[in-house]
């Protein structure tokens, strides 16, 4: 059985890699297997995790006892019926004349996402980052090295110029345009840094698969 699994994995691995040459029946077969199995897999996992684990157990909590044998069963959370009701409304889409009701749960989701993200993103992205940029250019005790001073200046100037680039209300011309160009310079450096940082980890993924093919499957490397 283990042997079969190994060969199957190798078959699937090579099938996916074959896409790099061109689209072909082998890849199409792997793709079909991948889509079918994974769609089923995720539905099952979500069903047991969310419908059973979160909804059912939330409404009808399982009996639990602590080490001393005292009952510590959670209180039933009947609010979860709201979630289930919205879920059922979603299915109204399948009923021809009242399909529009399915917009209610959609509206609920959009409203809650917008409400939750608004303050959370504002707090973590805007407030915290602005606060983090307020650092002394010459170090805490006027004792920073030239290396650190240049670094601090770069962080302050770069953040400022980057924000100028994102400004929508003013054309990028004159001094403003020049500053925006400095902003672009910093953004490109940032993207380059992220790019370079990721390349190695991507290579290690390939090495992992090569290790499987040449080691686990073919036994060419130990």
């Amino acid at each position: 059985m283990e042997h079969f699994a190994l060969w199957l994995a190798a078959f699937l691995t090579l099938g996916i890699v074959s896409f790099l040459y061109k689209d072909n029946p082998w890849y199409k077969l792997c793709e079909a297997i991948f889509v079918g199995l994974s769609a089923g897999y995720w539905f099952v996992v979500l069903f047991w995790d969310n419908i059973y684990g979160k909804f059912w157990v939330g409404v009808f909590p399982l009996e639990e006892f602590d080490e001393a044998g005292r009952e510590i069963t959670a209180e039933p959370d009947y609010w979860l019926f709201v979630g289930a009701a919205l879920g059922i409304l979603m299915l109204m889409r399948l009923v021809p004349n009242i399909g529009w009701i399915s917009r209610w749960p959609l509206a609920f989701i959009v409203g809650s996402t917008a409400g939750l993200y608004l303050i959370n993103y504002f707090s973590s992205n805007m407030m915290r980052q602005v606060q983090g940029t307020i650092v002394p250019l010459f170090g805490a005790g006027y004792d920073a090295s030239a290396y650190a001073i240049v670094g601090n200046i770069v962080v302050a100037v770069g953040t400022f110029a980057g924000l100028v680039y994102f400004f929508f209300s003013k054309e990028h011309r004159g001094v403003f345009g020049g500053t925006a160009k400095v902003g672009v310079f910093f953004l490109m450096l940032t993207f380059g840094a992220s790019f370079g940082y990721t390349v190695m980890s991507r290579m290690s993924l390939l090495i992992g698969r090569m290790d499987f093919l040449l080691g686990d499957w073919l036994g060419m490397i130990k």
Binding site: F43, L46, N50, I51, V82, G83, L86, G87
Partner: peptide, 11 residues
């Protein structure tokens, strides 16, 4: 939590 439940129905 409500969203998680709705998402399964939507599936």
């Amino acid at each position: 939590l409500f969203f998680d439940i709705i998402a399964v129905f939507a599936f």
